[in-house]
């Protein structure tokens, strides 16, 4: 990951001719985009389009080809795909101890729990016994406790019911606005794109990746190319 401390304007990240190949199979091909500080970028695409792999490469977990420039030093927070209350279901681990795994304790934990609307009482509860929504809110507090300025969230609401998912989405919008974060949010859900995002990065298995403001970029033609089928979406 190359860092350029004094970049132009408020550009945070620039990606050029970016590709990721795993086990000799190209997963992400020729992605180009520029992200400014404070953007809420939704990464959209069908299964197998490389969303998760792209995020892992941006976070620095898998090798990549092409260029990746951080114009400001990022402090990255990352919530990977598939992390939910079932991941700790079998573990005698309280919420307080889960925070202690990253050496965060005391008043700071309470501060972040309160930020995501959780009461002090959850501290002594087993993390695996929280509801899906509570667990995701706790995870958001957990990742924020390190003081990141860039968040990568990989399908954080996939395993949740509609109401719980909407609560977490609304929380993410509030956190993004209040904490002045740059967020990269992987999802399948087109509703989220129009409700929350300032920008969208769309990946498809066959077509060219696209990047821009949702209302400009997500034309029926692009959606057809991304999802490979006739798709209708009405913006209310």
């Amino acid at each position: 990951m190359q860092e350029v401390p004094d970049g132009p304007g408020k550009i945070l990240l620039e990606v050029k001719n970016f590709s990721v190949t795993l086990d000799r199979t190209p997963i992400v091909r020729n992605v180009n985009f520029r992200v400014q500080e404070g953007e809420f970028v939704t990464i959209l695409g069908p299964n197998g389009s490389g969303k998760t792999v792209l995020v892992k490469a941006l976070v620095g977990l898998v090798p990549y080809g092409g260029e990746l420039h951080w114009y400001r030093k990022p402090k990255i927070g990352y919530l990977p795909q598939g992390l939910n209350q079932m991941s700790v279901r079998d573990l005698p681990l309280t919420v307080k101890e889960f925070f202690r795994l990253k050496k965060v304790q005391g008043a700071k934990v309470l501060q972040y729990l309160s930020l995501v609307g959780l009461r002090e009482a959850v501290l002594e509860q087993r993390a695996g016994h929280l509801s899906g929504g509570e667990f995701q809110r706790m995870l958001v507090a957990w990742v924020l406790a390190s003081g990141p300025n860039v968040l990568f969230l990989d399908e954080p609401t996939t395993a949740m019911d509609v109401a719980g998912g909407e609560t977490v989405q609304s929380l993410l919008r509030d956190v993004w606005r209040d904490q002045k974060l740059t967020i990269f949010h992987v999802t399948h859900d087109l509703n989220i794109v129009f409700a929350s995002s300032t920008h969208v990065l769309c990946l498809s298995r066959v077509g060219k990746p696209c990047y821009g403001v949702p209302k400009e970029v997500l034309t029926p033609e692009i959606l057809r190319e991304v999802y490979g089928a006739q798709i209708k979406f009405h913006i209310h």
Binding site: K56, L61, P80, S87, L93, L101, K102, F152
Partner: peptide, 13 residues
């Protein structure tokens, strides 16, 4: 323990 919960989460931390 963090690695056992989710290896990528641990790496990112």
């Amino acid at each position: 323990m963090l690695m056992s919960i989710h290896e990528d989460l641990a790496k990112a931390e």
